[in-house]
Write a protein that binds this DNA or RNA. Structure first.
Length: 214
DNA sequence: AATTAGTCCAACCGCATAACG
DNA sequence: CCGTTATGCGGTTGGACTAAT
């Protein structure tokens, strides 16, 4: 159960385990290694690739960011609707929901839900239900699955027949009209020197990978 | 211009479960 | 079976960035 993975090892040599933001070099190493050897067996992969990262960290980086088929940003209204409907069905089963949204990661969906939809639900809940429980109550239902029969309001909120309206309301709030970047071209800060505004994108890494002769 | 508050998301942590010897 | 290790999942957090004051 990867119990002592991040503990730095009980004894001896394996010394520092890097944490925090990934550098471009690390990304390249990981991409190259996986291109050559495939993914899986993350602990030994991390070692063999020469990364001072835990296998867990490598896996996460790969699955959530470096994988070539991962779509980033710009969650469409259709995807949003899917998220809302599936969340109503399954609750916080993010990975399960993600399986129905090709290219989306559970992490991204989870973040999207928490930062956009949940907030909207709480907000609208506060304006429609007067007094006490409202936000706590709605918050509860936004973060847990099952039993949606407490109030008609909550039912409506999750009803497939009305969820599209909610989706479009949220779309308005999110300003989808001028929502920005094309998928796959998100820029990320160069963590080698975070004070500088240097960026690279995942798109930049893949050609480099090929160039390196993988 | 400086400071504070709010937002967003990458990455971490802990736990559950699957796989293996 | 049982113990150990690997993997996957969901919750949470740190900090960069942006907007508001």
């Amino acid at each position: 159960m990867e119990k002592r993975e991040s503990s730095g090892g009980s004894g001896s040599g394996d010394a520092e385990v890097r944490k925090g933001p990934w550098t471009m070099e690390e990304d390249l190493i990981l991409i190259n290694y996986i291109a050559n050897h495939g993914e899986g067996v993350w602990n030994s992969l991390a070692k063999s690739a020469g990364l001072k990262r835990t296998g867990k960290s490598c896996r996460l980086r790969w699955l959530n960011y470096l994988r070539p088929d991962v779509r980033r940003g710009n969650i469409t209204p259709e995807e949003q609707l899917t998220i809302m409907e599936l969340h109503a069905k399954w609750g916080n089963r993010w990975s399960k929901i993600a399986k129905h949204l090709p290219g989306r990661t559970d992490n991204e969906i989870k973040n999207f839900w928490r930062t956009k939809i949940q907030k909207y639900i709480i907000k609208s809940g506060e304006t429609t239900t007067v007094g006490s429980q409202s936000s706590e109550f709605i918050n509860h239902h936004a973060t847990t699955s099952h039993v949606m029969n407490d109030t008609q309001e909550t039912m409506d909120m999750y009803s497939p027949t009305t969820s599209y309206q909610h989706a479009s309301n949220i779309n308005q709030q999110l300003n989808y009209g001028n929502y920005v970047p094309e998928s796959g071209s998100i820029m990320m800060p160069l963590s080698v020197d975070q004070s500088e505004q240097n960026y690279w994108s995942v798109d930049d890494l893949w050609p480099m990978n090929i160039y390196n002769g993988n």
